[in-house]
Nucleic acid binder design. Structure first.
Length: 420
RNA sequence: GCGGGCGUAGCUCAGCUGGUUAGAGCACCAGGUUGUGGUCCUGGGGGUCACGGGUUCGAAUCCCGUCGCUCGCCCCA
C-alpha cells in the first residue's frame, strides 16, 4: 500500500465506480447543453509550449511562476501540461481557420494540471468543462455565457446551491486608469496591508480588493471604487449586461471586489459560488478577455468564456447516477455452455447489457449476478435447450418463469431491461 | 511555500495510564446446497500496527524524524 508504484501521484486519483459516474454526469450534461446552445466542441492537446501560458496568464501570476508542470522535451522545447483551457482554445482558433465564422462559439472539457497543495475540491490533475465565445464584442455574448452557466448548474440540480456574483472591470482604458488610482491609494496605506497584499500591490494590485485579511478589508473598504472609474462606454456595457439578465430573470449580486488580476481581462467578471465545499467556493467562473488574442500575437478580437470545475460540481451532486444493471446469462451444466454464449452475443447485438461468467456452477454464477447488481438472470440447461426456452429470473422479486427463445427480446424490453 | 488533524486487515474502526500468539463488524474465498442469488450456519485467507530511529526487561501504545492522507492559508475551477 505504501509502495510508491502502487499509489497514484500526489494530487491525482483514479476515477472508478460512483465517482466516475458523477464525473461523467457533469461532463455529459455540459456537453449536451453546449450543443443545445449551438456551441461546437473542441479538444486541444494537453501539451502546449510553455510560452503560451507565460504570455496569457502573465509571468508574475502564481500559476505560471510556481504551479505549472513544465519540462524540456527531447527536442529541447519547453513544454507545459496545460493549467487551464482558455489559452489553448484561443490558440487553436487562431492557428486554424476557425475564426472565419464569427462569433465562434466553442465548448471544451478535459484534464488540467497545477502543482498546488491538494485540498478538498482541489487536485493537481483536475478537470474542467468550459466555453469560449470569440469575436463578439456585444454584451449579448456575456449574457449568453452567464445564462448557459446558470442553466448548467440548474440541470445538475444545483440552482439552489450557488449564487452568482457579478462585476465589471471596464474596458482596457478605464481599467488602466483605475489601476493607477488604486495603486497610489494603496501605497499611501501600505503600512496597514498584510504582507501578502504588499506583494500583490507589486504584481497584481487589483487582487488586494478580494483579500480575506481583516486589516486589508478595512483599507479596501475606503479605497476608490472601480465602478466610479468606468468611462461612459464601460458603464453602458455593464448596464446592458445587467438589464438583459434582469429581463431574463437571472438573479445576481454585484460584488465590486470581484476581480481578475490579469491585464487582458475587461468588462464582465462573474463567479458562481457555493458555501458547501469548504474553502473552495467557486464552481463556475469566467469573464471577458478582450485583450487576450492580441497578447498572443493574433488578431485583436474580443472574447468571453467560463470554466467550471468538474470535481467540485461532481461532489455537489446530491446523488450518484446508478450503475447499469446487466442481464446475467447462466448456463446450467457443461452442455449448455455453447448455447449460453450464442444467447449472450445475440442479446448484446440487440443492445442489452449482458454479463457471462467464465466458470462456476449455476449457484455460484447466480451469486455473481447478485453481486454485480443484475436485474435479471437468464438460465438454460438441458431441459431448456430441448424445449428452445430460457428461464428468466427477476432477481429483485425472485420470480422465475420460462420463456420461448424467440419471445425473449420482446419480453426483456417490456420488463425494462437495460440497453446501451 | 506556511499551519492544524490523522496513519492498526480490502473498508469502517476498537485496542493506546507500555505487559503472553493484535481484535470486531462489513467485504472476500470455500463448504453446507454437483439446476438457482439474497437469509442462515460452518470453516478459511488476509496485518513488516505507514516507515526509520530512540527510551525500556518489554512498544501498536511513550519520544523524535521521514513519508503519506486530510483540512485550512496562499492561489484558483
Amino acid at each position: 500500500m505504501s509502495a510508491p508504484t502502487a499509489r497514484p501521484v500526489r494530487g491525482t486519483r483514479d476515477l472508478f465506480g460512483e465517482v466516475l459516474r458523477r464525473h461523467r454526469r457533469v461532463v455529459e450534461t455540459a456537453r449536451s447543453l453546449a450543443l443545445r446552445y449551438a456551441f461546437a466542441e473542441i479538444e486541444t492537446p494537453i501539451l502546449e509550449f510553455t510560452d503560451l501560458f507565460a504570455r496569457s496568464l502573465g509571468e508574475g501570476s502564481d500559476v505560471v511562476s510556481k504551479e505549472m508542470y513544465s519540462f524540456t522535451d527531447r527536442g529541447g522545447d519547453s513544454i507545459t501540461l496545460r493549467p487551464e483551457g482558455t489559452a489553448a482554445v484561443v490558440r487553436a482558433a487562431m492557428a486554424g481557420s476557425l475564426l472565419q465564422l464569427r462569433p465562434l462559439k466553442l465548448f471544451y472539457h478535459g484534464p488540467m494540471f497545477r502543482y498546488e497543495r491538494p485540498q478538498k475540491g482541489r487536485l493537481r490533475q483536475f478537470h474542467q468543462v468550459g466555453v469560449e465565445v470569440l469575436g463578439a464584442a456585444e454584451p449579448a455574448a456575456d449574457v449568453e455565457c452567464i445564462l448557459m452557466g446558470r442553466h448548467l448548474l440548474e440541470e445538475l440540480g444545483l440552482g439552489e446551491a450557488v449564487v452568482l456574483e457579478l462585476n465589471s472591470l471596464g474596458n482596457l482604458e478605464s481599467r488602466r486608469r483605475y489601476r493607477e488610482v488604486l495603486v497610489s491609494y494603496l501605497r499611501r496605506r501600505e503600512g496597514e496591508l498584510s504582507p501578502e497584499s504588499r506583494v500583490r500591490l507589486q504584481r497584481n494590485p487589483l487582487r488586494v480588493l478580494d483579500s480575506k485579511d481583516a486589516g486589508d478589508r478595512r483599507v479596501v473598504a475606503e479605497a476608490p471604487r472601480l465602478t466610479d472609474h468606468l468611462d461612459e462606454e464601460s458603464r453602458r456595457f455593464f448596464e446592458e449586461v445587467c438589464d438583459r439578465l434582469d429581463s431574463l430573470g437571472v438573479a445576481y449580486r454585484i460584488n465590486p471586489h470581484l476581480v481578475r488580476g490579469l491585464d487582458y481581462y475587461t468588462h464582465t467578471a462573474f463567479e458562481f459560488t457555493t458555501d458547501r465545499l469548504g474553502a473552495q467556493g467557486a464552481v463556475l467562473a469566467g469573464g471577458r478577455y478582450d485583450g487576450l488574442m492580441a497578447a498572443l500575437g493574433g488578431p485583436d478580437l474580443p472574447g468571453i468564456g467560463w470554466a467550471a470545475g468538474v470535481e467540485r460540481l461532481a461532489m455537489l451532486l446530491s446523488e450518484a447516477p446508478p450503475a447499469p444493471r446487466p442481464l446475467a446469462v447462466i448456463p446450467v451444466g457443461e452442455e449448455a455452455e455453447g448455447e449460453a454464449w450464442r444467447l449472450a452475443q445475440e442479446l448484446r447485438r440487440a443492445g442489452f447489457v449482458v454479463d457471462l461468467a467464465y466458470r462456476g456452477r449455476a449457484g455460484q454464477r447466480m451469486k455473481r449476478a447478485d453481486r454485480l447488481g443484475c436485474r435479471f438472470a437468464l438460465s438454460l440447461g438441458g431441459d431448456e435447450l430441448a424445449r428452445g426456452t430460457v428461464r428468466l429470473r427477476d432477481l429483485d422479486s425472485g420470480e422465475e418463469r420460462e420463456i420461448a427463445r424467440d419471445e425473449l427480446a420482446d419480453t426483456l424490453l417490456g420488463l425494462g431491461a437495460e440497453r446501451r
